[in-house]
Computed example of a mutant assay.
Amino acid sequence: MRLLIATDAWHPQVNGVVRSLEHMEIAGRALGYDPVFLTHQDFRSLPMPGYPEIRLAYATKRKVAERWSDLAPTHVHIATEGTVGYATRRYCLAEGRPFTTSYHTRFPEYLAARAPVPESWSYAWLRRFHGAACATMVSTPSLERDLAARGFTNLLRWTRGVDTELFRPQASDALDHLPRPHFLFVGRLAVEKNIAAFLSLDLPGTKVIVGDGPDRARLEALAPDAAFLGTQTGPALARIYAAADVFVFPSLTDTFGIVLLEALACGLPVAAYPVTGPLDVIGGTQAGVLDRDLRTAALAALRIPRETCREEALRYTWAESARQFYANIESAHARAPSPRRSWGRRPARAVELG
């Protein structure tokens, strides 16, 4: 398999989509696959207003066609619904080439938080976008149920992993200069992450914020006593996780939350709302506390043994994630209709995919 992965999420972005695709490349090569990428770097682009790290590509069907012969894919996966993903989708439909997609981000909720756009409109567009695929991958059972109820079809499960060698329990003085206990958040500082809900909690010790984004100035003004450490990656980030006491995940809209696995792998218990992502990773385990009252969850999580969290994280590996990812692509492409130029211009037939 020479797999073309078309994605609008790529470097210099630092987020779960980029990390997942990076690991699909590394683990995929170890499994004998040959992944290649089509990203904003293959087109002219400009920075997104308010998110300069996100590049908006001038991607068109014609430009995709120009790159196709060099990439020479046998299979296609469209990871995002942006301009790169949309142009690739148009090319595949025009040429009768089957493709898979994945659903990473709740754009309807994100857009509704910023503009008066009804979620039903956005979901209708996304349903059409993914409906042309021979399968759409989702990360959790609760997300699968939610999308199925909204009319999405041909859904396959693709879990995520964590590097348990990088993210591990260790002695760390990374937060020793701050009063304890340390309640940590890691992620993009944007309105959809609901970070203000965390910063408004009456908690002892220090709230620690790792990450950057368009909402940083507002959040710093909202919580001047919180410690904002900016973007951290690699060993530096792992040391911060290991030094903290509770990982607080206030998001109501994430589809998974790789940071949850990173925290658990470092022995850090999680406090979160009982919503998609935390429900699937933390629900039914002893590695965190889910509660509609986030303060109650955060204080209760202080009592969770770190060994329990580490044991839960060891269930997730990037190798297993890659195995699912490539098996889904092989299965979906094998059962897709025979290539023809009209393929995908009418609703994709229902197929049962394992």
Results as ranks from 00 to 15, higher is better:
183 F>C: 02
179 P>Q: 07
130 H>D: 05
119 E>W: 02
178 L>R: 09
189 L>T: 01
180 R>E: 10
193 K>L: 04
129 F>Q: 09
193 K>R: 13
205 G>S: 12
175 L>F: 02
186 V>N: 01
168 R>D: 03
160 R>F: 02
189 L>E: 00
125 W>S: 11
204 P>Q: 12
189 L>H: 01
178 L>N: 06
195 I>A: 00
109 E>C: 04
114 R>C: 11
144 E>T: 12
194 N>K: 05
203 L>Y: 07
194 N>Q: 10
158 W>D: 04
144 E>W: 05
200 S>K: 14
174 A>I: 02
126 L>C: 10
161 G>Y: 00
170 Q>S: 13
125 W>H: 12
141 P>W: 03
128 R>M: 11
197 A>T: 13
174 A>Q: 01
150 R>F: 04
165 E>I: 07
202 D>Q: 15
142 S>R: 12
198 F>P: 00
177 H>L: 12
176 D>V: 12
193 K>E: 09
206 T>C: 08
186 V>Q: 01
113 A>H: 11
162 V>W: 00
196 A>M: 05
163 D>V: 05
136 T>S: 14
162 V>Y: 00
164 T>C: 15
177 H>A: 15
197 A>L: 11
178 L>F: 13
123 Y>N: 07
120 S>W: 13
154 N>V: 02
171 A>V: 13
148 A>K: 13
116 P>T: 03
177 H>F: 09
118 P>L: 02
135 A>P: 04
194 N>D: 12
191 V>I: 14
147 L>I: 08
151 G>P: 03
188 R>Q: 10
157 R>F: 10
182 H>T: 08
141 P>H: 03
131 G>F: 03
130 H>M: 10
134 C>G: 08
198 F>Q: 01
192 E>K: 05
133 A>T: 08
126 L>I: 08
189 L>S: 00
202 D>Y: 08
158 W>T: 12
173 D>M: 08
134 C>E: 07
146 D>F: 15
174 A>Y: 00
182 H>V: 10
190 A>I: 04
145 R>G: 12
137 M>Y: 05
195 I>R: 00
200 S>P: 06
148 A>W: 09
123 Y>V: 06
122 S>C: 14
127 R>S: 08
139 S>W: 03
139 S>F: 11
200 S>A: 15
122 S>L: 13
190 A>D: 04
151 G>I: 02
132 A>R: 11
109 E>G: 09
135 A>D: 01
196 A>H: 13
165 E>F: 09
205 G>E: 06
143 L>S: 02
206 T>A: 09
151 G>S: 06
